[in-house]
Design a protein around this nucleic acid. Structure first.
Lengths: 333, 333
DNA sequence: TTGAAAGCGCTAACAT
DNA sequence: ATGTTAGCGCTTTCAA
């Protein structure tokens, strides 16, 4: 290649990566030779020698979760047009801990790592800090991220819903959903929101595993069994609430007259149910996009003004809690 | 590192990548030194020297499409526990052609490449063949893939729905959805299915861009304007059909009494609408998983028995076309 | 503005 | 079973 262009290898390198450092004429010779030979730089050699990795490792817990898929797409879009490439880390269904997973990623010398969620293990957190590269945690919230965080104040989301429930005067209220991490924050906030308006939580139904319509259907049954007279349920995710909605229809339970239901996440179809679902809107794509932008800025040696960004949450009251003005078409960016 | 272990670098290499080629005692010395020094191999150097890339490039058109997100998760799962890592190619929103995108990926010397969709440009197809690495096209179908393909016989899906519509005796039938690629195949199949049972298509409403509830709502309006007396519409995706369903309710149009609606894809919520949606079920996760497995086999130097796999499609009749026996809970695999 | 020499960290090939 | 030598393809550093 250098031979074809009639220059030295280093000149080829310069002509391609820093064209302004090469005389127009020489550059032309190189460009011609590139076309002629079909030359493509070897990015691996380039990263190795320069020590400047172009790899951003992405730990995605589950792409089947629409919110996380949106988040990742946002992040990918933020990196469009840059030299950086997103590399998916193994998800670890095989029972590997985050420690092992990280070690499977380090050989590629990532320039940065990003997580959908926060890093739980203290050891891994320490290890990440030791890497001295930008680390991004997303979706969830904690006040002390490893490095940077773009997430949701799930507690605030719960609080909004708690206030909504209490103000509507529900008396026997249940929560059904996750009770660790984000779920716990949401639950705590929900309790606070209720309390602030004279309400109280009567029952907590933990739902493990990935949320599904089926889990939601089952949860409705449990709620009615374990809390007779239950008049309102807040679900940890829209998917669960949709399942409950279906089960309620099957059982002939009137929503919201007899039982109010609400979800969390505002998926696109939540407003399209036979009874549009009250929920908390979250901007998952935006979270990923912002996270990507922040990582980019850090990788470009700039510092970012804020290391922790909380994405806004918005209560979206609809018919399923009985006091919505419209038929459920309320949606926004 | 080699010094700490008291052996030569090549022995370290062997102890870590081919332990059976190293005496137990030596291996122990190496392992100890690894722990002590926190050594992590440099995969970049390893790939460079050995010429064996561990990178699989993934061209994902849009993760916000649930089917494609499922597909990618399936593929990622198939690669769990292997040395291969999935690297996301840029999506090309910036108006770049597949040609340019491929060139942005080649520097990383991928061991294989995979696409969600087929490769259209003949030039790119030729280029891919020239790379002499496994190439996987997914989701869509074409009889002459670059190398391997795991996709859907969209024409067959259309045919199933066409037969369903004709057998139910609809008279003024419209199709609304994509009219290129998969959309065209589906449309052609739909026409065939109708014709085979004495039916005919009265109107085609092209819907461009990414399918959304809003597009579906608009499409319903257009259908009723452009085809007065229209009694059945087949949508190119469930999302569009859901939008139409909502608009129909707003307009007071009785579904399916006055107008039957059907979608394509069988998203989880399609069975949960106020009128459960007739649709065609597709197994998107399974497509990705199978594609990943086939790539693995090829990368392990094995050959695969079949280079083209068609994932099965299944008609799921529900209430929205008026003849479903149940309330819409029919779902499977 | 261009080049020569060196070496990033690893492993193939060839000893021993 | 282990070591020596060389070199993957690039870019840093230093020199001209």
């Amino acid at each position: 290649m250098a031979r074809v262009a009639g220059v030295s290898p280093i000149t080829v390198s310069r002509a391609l990566s820093t064209p302004q450092k090469v005389k127009e004429e020489t550059r032309q010779k190189v460009t011609d030779a590139v076309v002629k030979t079909g030359y493509v730089v070897n990015g691996l050699a380039s990263m190795l020698r320069s020590g400047r990795s172009a790899i951003v490792s992405l730990f995605v817990s589950n792409l089947q979760d629409q919110h996380l898929a949106n988040l990742i797409q946002g992040c990918a879009d933020a990196f469009e047009g840059t030299r950086y490439r997103l590399m998916m880390a193994p998800a670890g269904h095989a029972g590997l801990g985050q420690q092992d997973l990280l070690e499977q990623v380090l050989p590629y010398r990532p320039a940065a790592v990003m997580f959908t969620g926060t890093v739980k293990s203290e050891r891994v957190r320490a290890q990440l800090r030791g890497l001295a590269i930008p680390v991004m945690e997303t979706w969830d919230y904690r006040p002390d991220p490893v490095d940077m965080l773009v997430g949701l104040a799930h507690a605030e989301g719960g609080r909004l819903m708690g206030a909504h429930f209490a103000q509507l005067g529900f008396r026997r209220i249940a929560y059904a959903g996750g009770v660790s991490e984000a779920g716990l924050q949401r639950l705590d906030g929900f309790r606070e929101g209720l309390a602030a308006h004279g309400g109280a939580l009567a029952c907590v139904l933990p739902v493990g595993g990935r949320p599904s319509i089926g889990e939601g259907m089952a949860a409705l049954g449990r709620a009615r069994r374990e809390l007779p007279g239950c008049d309102a349920i807040f679900f940890g995710s829209d998917v669960l609430a949709v399942g409950a909605m279906l089960r309620a229809r099957q059982l002939g339970v009137d929503v919201p007259g007899e039982l109010a239901l609400a979800g969390y996440g505002d998926l696109e179809f939540s407003s399209q149910l036979h009874v549009p679902l009250t929920t908390v809107h979250v901007s998952s794509y935006q979270i990923g996009f912002t996270a990507g932008q922040m990582l980019r800025r850090r990788l470009d040696q700039d510092s970012v003004p804020e290391r922790v960004v909380l994405s806004p949450l918005r209560l979206v009251p609809r018919a399923s809690t009985g006091r919505a003005a419209d038929g459920g078409s309320s949606r926004a960016g």
